[in-house]
């Protein structure tokens, strides 16, 4: 792997050549930067500005300083949504990472049919969240659902009211999420596995290493840098969980699956309180920021 310094140009000389160099670089980036500024950065700034205002969409925003943030910190509902989201992060992120790794190991084995298995595990990635939500609503259905039927055959009785009880609703959402998105991590780990030079394994095999030893002493250490990428990305995605919850439970039962993203959505588009919603958005952005700093350092991008 070439380090950053090697892939970049040599430092340009001072004067006209360096300015020309800068101009060329920005000319290349101009089309993207235009889209980025107009459709992402500007609306984001409006959003951050809105977080300091009282704004009901109809009519003009009114500056209120930090009042929205103050409101949020004292809002039981918001704190509860933070707590629920954290619970989801714990429930889903760990399996997403561990299972993603194990699945990558599995489909990297020289087995017949592994390409089909890869494709099958990856397929949920192309399904929209609405479709995933309704299909799992049906599979998890309490009295005629597929899962409870087969669990019943295995002796799980009475049937679990997956989406109807506060204790099981969030795990059910997590199961759905794992089915849906574990393939992203699997693919990334798989890519990492394929980047490990075959010679490393060959020489170890000649030394008589078992396949477990190969995994333990070559595969896992070689994949460590990827964790620095996968873990923060998975955690951030889990923090923003919304669609599955919105389709499957609407945040219930008893608010047990009510997450920050849904808080933002409802505050903005049901209660039309853009100010508070934007402030919650800013907070949702700041919390996993620490993860991103770790992530960027790990990737040596900054």
């Amino acid at each position: 792997m070439s380090s950053l310094a090697k892939t970049l140009d040599k430092p340009a000389e001072a004067g006209w050549a360096s300015i020309r160099n800068d101009l060329i670089a920005y000319a290349f980036m101009a089309p993207y930067l235009f889209l980025f500024i107009v459709f992402l950065l500007l609306p984001a700034f409006v959003g951050v500005y809105a977080s300091f205002t009282k704004w009901g969409i109809i009519g003009d925003p009114k500056w209120v300083g930090f009042r929205n943030y103050d409101k949020l910190i004292n809002s039981e509902l918001f704190l509860e949504s933070l707590q629920n989201t954290l619970y989801f992060v714990i429930l889903a992120a760990i399996p997403l990472i561990v299972l993603g790794f194990l699945l990558a190991l599995l489909v990297n084995q020289k087995l017949r049919g592994r390409n089909i298995a890869r494709a099958i595990v990856f397929l949920p990635h192309v399904v929209s969240v609405a479709a995933v939500g309704i299909v799992f609503q049906w599979i998890l259905e309490r009295s005629s659902g597929l899962l409870n039927y087969y669990l019943g055959l295995l002796g799980v009785n009475p049937p679990i009211n997956w989406l109807g009880e506060p204790e099981s609703a969030m795990p059910a959402i997590a199961i759905t999420t794992i089915w849906w998105t574990v393939n992203g991590n699997m693919i990334i780990y798989l890519a990492g596995l394929q980047d490990i030079p075959e010679e490393l394994y060959e020489s170890a095999r000649i030394d008589g290493a078992s396949s477990w030893q190969l995994t333990r002493h070559i595969t896992i250490p070689m994949l460590l840098p990827i964790n620095a990428f996968v873990i923060p990305l998975t955690v951030i995605a889990c923090w923003r969980v919304f669609g599955q919850v919105f389709v499957m439970t609407r945040g219930g039962p008893q608010g047990s699956t009510f997450t920050v993203a849904q808080f933002i959505y409802e505050t903005a588009f049901v209660n039309f309180n853009m100010g508070v919603a934007s402030a919650a958005g800013v907070i949702l952005m700041l919390i996993p920021l620490s993860f991103t700093v770790v992530q960027l350092r790990a990737m040596k991008v900054i």
């Binding site: 950065l41 500007l42 958005g281 952005m285």
Partner: peptide
């Protein structure tokens, strides 16, 4: 840094602007 930080942006707050 600016481009990457937008990974964190919740899409919901962009919608209305």
């Amino acid at each position: 840094l600016i481009i990457l930080s937008t990974f964190l942006l919740p899409g919901e707050i962009l919608l209305v602007p």
